[in-house]
Write a protein that binds this DNA or RNA. Structure first.
Lengths: 225, 225
DNA sequence: ATTATTTTGTGATTTAAGTCACATTGTTTA
DNA sequence: TAAACAATGTGACTTAAATCACAAAATAAT
């Protein structure tokens, strides 16, 4: 499917600096697709031949851990997906799955590679993004292993609020079982902590709808466990 | 201190493709230094103005977690250090400390940036390395959070043996307290698991000297907890 | 060498959080 | 609109591993 990438309203900031020929190349060599919640966009174990640009919606990055699925993080559009798994290995080392309805562009690795080579700023931006992701990974991993459940749940709620939905009211796009895999705990503990926070007046839970009532407390819990 | 980078016997594979002018730039703009075990090479919280190339020796990458120091991993020469923290943030988000005597080159970020811009292959190699590191981070984090102590200790021992020392006999360059921060457990548990492995004839412990006697068992423990 | 300081070994106790078991509610789909 | 299935709430029990509290070695410092 062809469309004009230069006019694409969803472009990443990094793409602002692309040259004309790169835009033409992109326009001619990408595939726009829609996925529904739950659909697999990138699948661990398959050959990785495409970089994915998430135009709209939310997705989870996850992989098979030694004992159960591990959700690394939830990302929102616009963002590139699968750079590490596409450039880092021939076979996908993680999966990406839609957690809302999404629109994505599939870009052939070689085309993406060309564009990287022909646009210094773009490739610098990508390098910076990769570096920032790695820093974030370090911190996230340290937090997850050191904090206990309440702290990690607080972190997850704050991340949804501040990084993804930009609002104190939002609908969690994951089941409690998935939340458990994100926060490294059990499904039951997620349920317990959520109702405890609700009981303590820190959040207001109505099914998957969450309102953060007392953000200060939540931040304290995030910091002090 | 000036020296000829092109002739440097410690060059990373990525540097094999550098152009003449880049080598000259590197030669004129780097600083070779020696550090002793325990010396800080990159310090979390300081301004990050240099990329570090580890010529010889071993170093640990570590950061302040919410409750205690977290050792991310131990790396050996030759390798670049601090790319994520130098490109990803103005302030170092992690520390790097020598765990053996080491030799390093400090390279100004701007010089490194120039070299990246002027050498496609080099910048591709760096991108690939960053991607692979991120993949590794994902797996490492999933393992650490899901496995229990014996599995994680087995992983650490196997990594020292297979990735760092390339031998079944080696001297652990960390104290048990540091090992605990690497493996996400307590100092006491490290001690207990180590003597348990010794008692079971899986490893032979003489102070910090370790011999892996039964690698199959160790791999089984790594896989099955 | 001798003292001081850090590192290690091990038992006893405590605790956070996982597992199990089942009730209840919510959501598909036939 | 049932019936089937999936997601959630909660209590009781179990367990891995942390913490505490020392003693014993090993290293470093004087």
């Amino acid at each position: 499917m062809e469309s004009n990438c230069k006019e694409c309203p969803f472009n990443a900031k990094a793409a602002a600096t692309l040259c004309e020929t790169s835009f033409e190349q992109l326009s001619a060599n990408h595939l726009v697709l829609k996925f529904k919640r739950g659909d697999s966009i990138i699948k661990q174990g398959m050959y990785s031949t495409n970089v994915v640009f998430l135009r709209t919606g939310l997705a989870k990055i996850h992989l098979a851990g030694p004992y159960h699925e591990q959700i690394v993080r939830v990302v929102k559009a616009p963002t590139y997906l699968g750079l590490p798994t596409t450039f880092g290995d021939k076979i996908n080392q993680y999966s990406v799955t839609a957690v809302s309805d999404v629109e994505v562009c599939f870009i052939d690795v070689h085309v993406f590679q060309n564009i990287l080579n022909e646009n210094r700023e773009f490739s610098n931006d990508i390098i910076i993004e990769l570096c920032q992701n790695e820093l974030e990974s370090f911190h996230r991993c340290a937090n997850r292993t050191q904090k206990q459940i309440r702290g990690n749940m607080a972190d997850a709620l704050l991340e949804f609020s501040d990084k993804i939905f930009m609002s104190d009211t939002f609908t969690i796009p994951l089941s409690q079982a998935e939340l458990a895999n994100l926060v490294d705990t059990s499904r039951e503990s997620v349920s317990r902590v959520l109702s405890e926070f609700d009981k303590d007046g820190i959040i207001d839970v109505k099914g998957k709808q969450i309102e953060i009532v007392n953000k200060k407390s939540l931040k304290l819990i995030s910091q002090n466990g």
